[in-house]
C-alpha cells in the first residue's frame, strides 16, 4: 500500500479539520476559512492552550494520515505558531515546509 504524499491541499484539509475539532471541543463556533486567524492577534480564535492542543492534534493526524512516514514535532510547531500571527493558511504552509524538510523515506 503506497503512502499518500503531503500536497498543499491535503495539509490544508488536515489543518482545517484539526482546527475544527479543537474549536468544537471548546464550544467555539466560527466560519472557518484559510484566512481565519488562529493565534497572535486580538481576533485569534485560539488561546495558548488551544494552540497546544491544535499542534498535538495536527501531529496525530499527520502521523495517522501518512502511516508514520511523515512526522511533525509539536513543540517546534507550537513555537512557530505562537511567535507570529498565524492563519490556517500560514500554519498549513509551515506544516508542509516542516514535513518536507523532516521526511525520512
Amino acid at each position: 500500500m503506497s503512502t499518500p504524499q503531503p500536497t498543499r491541499d491535503v495539509i490544508v484539509h488536515l489543518v482545517q479539520s484539526s482546527v475544527q475539532t479543537i474549536l468544537q471541543r471548546r464550544g467555539i463556533r466560527v466560519e472557518l476559512s484559510e484566512q481565519t486567524v488562529l493565534s497572535g492577534a486580538p481576533d485569534a480564535v485560539l488561546d495558548s492552550l488551544g494552540i497546544v492542543m491544535l499542534t498535538v492534534e495536527i501531529e496525530q493526524r499527520i502521523t495517522d494520515y501518512f502511516n508514520g512516514q511523515y512526522r511533525l514535532s509539536p513543540e517546534g510547531l507550537m513555537a512557530a505558531a505562537t511567535s507570529d500571527v498565524e492563519t490556517v493558511e500560514s500554519l498549513a504552509s509551515l506544516v508542509l515546509a516542516t514535513l518536507e524538510s523532516n521526511h525520512t523515506p
Partner: peptide, 19 residues
C-alpha cells in the same frame, strides 16, 4: 493519556477523555 500534552500544557488526559 498523551505525554506530549502533559509536557507542553500540563493537560494529563487526551482531549477525547473529557467529554
Amino acid at each position: 493519556i498523551d505525554p506530549k500534552l502533559w509536557y507542553m500544557a500540563k493537560v494529563y488526559f487526551a482531549p477525547s477523555v473529557y467529554p
